[in-house]
Design a protein around this nucleic acid. Sequence first.
DNA 1: GGCCAGGACACCA
DNA 2: TGGTGTCATGGC
Length: 225
Amino acid sequence: MTRSQRRGLIERIFRRLLRAFGPQSWWPADSPFEVVVGAILTQNTAWTNASTAIARLKEAELLDPEAMHRVEEGRLAEIIRPSGYFNQKARRLKTFCRHLCERWDGNLDRFLSRDMEQLRADCLSLHGIGPETADSIVLYAAQKPSFVVDAYTRRIFSRHGWVPHDVRYDALRDYFMDCLEGDVYFFQECHALLVRLGHRHCRRKPSCSGCPLEGFPPGGPGPAP
DNA sequence: GGCCAGGACACCA
DNA sequence: TGGTGTCATGGC
């Protein structure tokens, strides 16, 4: 499959999903900092649980970099308990806030307004921020075109035979970014629509009846080199 | 009661 | 470099 064929396939999938589900207008957050916090809290966790934890943070007036930097880690963990893995996530949130406050004077706008690859690399250097969380921060908090690959994207594309099921994160990210223009809106909607499709039709147990992508051609050479 | 969810990391061979 | 274990709550 050539690069333009790949782009055509992705764009056809996008149009089909947009028709089926409508615009998703992600990320569900009131501020860039809430995006960052949500991206960490939703790691391997249902969004409903992460959302409950965010509501508790708001209630405790801790949805602020300086406040979160100052709060004791054990208290933070208790507040975000509904998100699961709360001890790990409290440490990860503290790590991010310490970095932001000590290196960027707590100025998230300045932190986010850098060159995209610099920002992504900086996020990846922080303990607890892996590739998917970093890309979520770049795409939704910084509004820069870094494609977010998640479990649903991998599952959907491998089940249809478009990529190998064990494709690595960066290879699958390149599969999209190599053939698409860097369009923030498109990347955001594409990721959100794939998650929406995953919720409805591509959980771990295969159940594709009624899937909007039924009838799409299988096969393909795998991810871009 | 078991499975699953919008991952990341430590450890080991 | 790749495989495995660990972290944990809440909905269905």
